[in-house]
Design a protein around this nucleic acid. Structure first.
Length: 528
RNA sequence: GCGCCCAUGGCUCAGCUGGAUAGAGCAACGGACUUCUAAUCCGUAGGUCGCAGGUUCGAAUCCUGCUGGGCGUACCA
């Protein structure tokens, strides 16, 4: 409906220009940006020079053309043409409107996010990734993609050893009263003492406590985290273990042999390098260190080959800014395996900086200088926390201070959105009008402002997915909330002479609001 | 040094493929509950869109330079 309105009227202008002036021009009709202008085009301003007339002359000329679905057309200085639609279009649109998921488009997309080291509870930073990834996945799914939400568990490599070692030291300190020191880079936080408590008896029975801890502590942390995410409404389809890639030689050999065959592998200083310079990168990188360990890059290569082979059309990774340098490196390396560079898209969610006592501090699991996601959610609720992260664009840096966060979120704008649904629900219950909404036949001005926004729904979702910014949908829903609360304030529904009509209107609107809230990962409480 | 990101009212942020008076929320101030939830509504005040140039009929938006902040620039993950 929206599309056809735009398309038909653009074509009318396009055809006119071609016939009258022999001018081929791209015509855009956009949603209004000021006061109550519904749609507009700035075409006269753009072509004034080309056809040697003033913008106002051109606009006046256009205004006498016959457009489709237009109630009123208006010329505004310095050369805009404003369109107002006939009510029938709004009514038809509303009556046929629904937020049905698109038909499956037959394409598969993998969205990997959070993927925090399994060495402790999530910190707030992961909350940003969680909220963002969840919403983005839902939006893709809405548009017909088959979405696989994936979590990559970094359970191989050095970090895990350090983690196990640290727990063992905590155990020795606490239960054997030994005077051990934590090394630089080791974990020294309350969580490892918790684990030492949990596994105390098994540690004392074991003759290889480090190996044992690597297994059980990782599993414990992972299980806890998994359960936590489930509690806030996030369930991953796949938990992919990095370690599993090393369990057999299959993946390793494939990578090494392929690179060798393509002469992209060489040894230097006892380490194994990939010749990324041959692939368009600025330098070569180590795959296997001189001590025999494989690097993170090597695991990432295996992992993404695996993703590619699983048949996804697109793969999106949501990473933190500290991984920026790894993007090019990985993409270039993957081309050696016939994986196109645009297969993998990396979204960088910018920094969440922790403010403590008015100062920025570096969040670190090792030092214990961090705020857990659980603390935050326990204090303000998961909807308010999600809103906080989701309402900011991905590239925006966030300064996070627990104190001001708690204070601000008592009045979190999420309540403004949810309250809209609760109000609708209240009226429906009170009117005891529980049947499905029927068509409406009249249109109030305040209803029109709301429907105007509904009109834009599909284009907002599309834009939001294309830009990968769920925040656009939040801004959009806020606009609807503003219109709704005005409408609600000005129209008493129960007892109104148009009660039936108004009830049908808000019922349908309520369904919409609930769908959109859920799409973004929020709940839609029926009362508040 | 080089690369990526950020800079918009007191605070938190939208707007950025150039367009009409730069928008919200919080905080401040003044109004509205005998009414379907006032978690709401109405109003007032508050802005050299970091600075300086450039492109353009037109720049918060594009380009260049600069300043300030974050991150990265590993045989860390």
């Amino acid at each position: 409906m929206y599309d056809s309105f735009i398309r038909e009227n653009s074509n009318i202008l396009k055809d006119y220009l071609l016939k009258k002036y022999n001018l081929k021009e791209n015509v855009t009709i956009e949603k209004g940006t000021i006061s109550d202008v519904e749609f507009y085009t700035s075409l006269p301003l753009k072509i004034a020079k080309k056809i040697k007339k003033t913008p106002m002359e051109i606009a006046n000329e256009f205004s006498s053309l016959k457009f489709f679905g237009i109630k009123k057309i208006e010329v505004a200085p310095p050369g805009f043409l404003n369109f107002y639609l006939i009510d029938g279009i709004y009514l038809d649109y509303f009556n046929s409107f629904s937020v049905n998921k698109h038909n499956k488009n037959g394409k598969k997309i993998n969205i990997e996010f959070i993927s925090a080291n399994p060495t402790g509870p999530f910190n707030v930073v992961s909350g940003r990734a969680a909220a963002y990834g969840m919403a983005l996945s839902n939006l893709f799914e809405y548009l017909g993609w088959s979405v696989t939400k994936e979590y990559y568990i970094n359970d191989a490599g050095r970090q895990v050893n350090i983690f196990a070692n640290s727990i063992y030291k905590a155990y020795q300190k606490k239960y054997e009263s030994r005077n051990v020191e934590f090394d630089e880079g080791e974990y020294n936080n309350p969580y490892i003492y918790e684990l030492a408590d949990i596994f105390k008896s098994r540690i004392s029975d074991s003759n290889d406590p480090i190996e044992l801890l690597k297994k059980i502590a990782l599993k414990e942390t992972n299980d806890t985290n998994k359960k936590f995410l489930k509690d806030i409404g996030l369930e991953f389809d796949i938990w992919f273990s990095e370690k599993s890639l090393y369990d057999s030689n299959k993946h390793k050999n494939y990578v090494l042999k392929t690179l060798e065959k393509k002469r992209l592998l060489y040894e230097k200083d006892n380490a194994l390098f990939i010749k990324n310079t041959e692939l368009g990168d600025s330098q070569d990188w180590v795959l296997k260190k001189s001590n025999g360990d494989y690097t993170y890059l090597f695991g990432d290569i295996m992992y993404h080959i695996n993703k590619y082979q699983r048949g996804f059309d697109r793969a999106i990774n949501i990473w933190g800014p500290d991984h920026i340098s790894g993007v090019k490196r990985l993409k270039k390396a993957l081309t050696a395996f016939g994986i196109p560079e645009d297969f993998l898209e990396v979204i960088i969610l910018q920094q969440v900086e922790l403010i403590k006592g008015g100062k920025k501090v570096t969040m670190s699991k090792r030092s214990g200088n961090y705020v857990t996601l659980k603390e935050v959610i326990d204090s303000v609720g998961s909807d308010a926390a999600k809103y906080y992260f989701l309402s900011k664009t991905a590239s925006q840096h966030i300064e996070f201070s627990l104190d001001s966060f708690e204070k601000d979120n008592e009045k979190s704008p999420i309540f403004y959105l949810q309250y809209m649904f609760a109000r609708i629900n209240g009226v429906i219950l009170k009117a005891n009008s529980l049947e499905e909404p029927r068509k409406i036949t009249t249109l109030l001005n305040s209803e029109k402002s709301i429907i105007y926004n509904l009109f834009l729904f599909e284009s907002i979702i599309n834009e939001s997915v294309q830009k990968m910014e769920p925040s656009l949908v939040i801004t959009y829903l806020s606009k609807i909330a503003t219109e709704f609360h005005k409408f609600y304030h000005n129209n008493k529904i129960i007892g109104n002479e148009n009660e039936e009509e108004l009830l049908n209107f808000i019922k349908k609107l309520g369904i919409f609001i609930k769908e959109v809230l859920n799409l973004l990962g929020f709940t839609a409480p029926e009362r508040m």
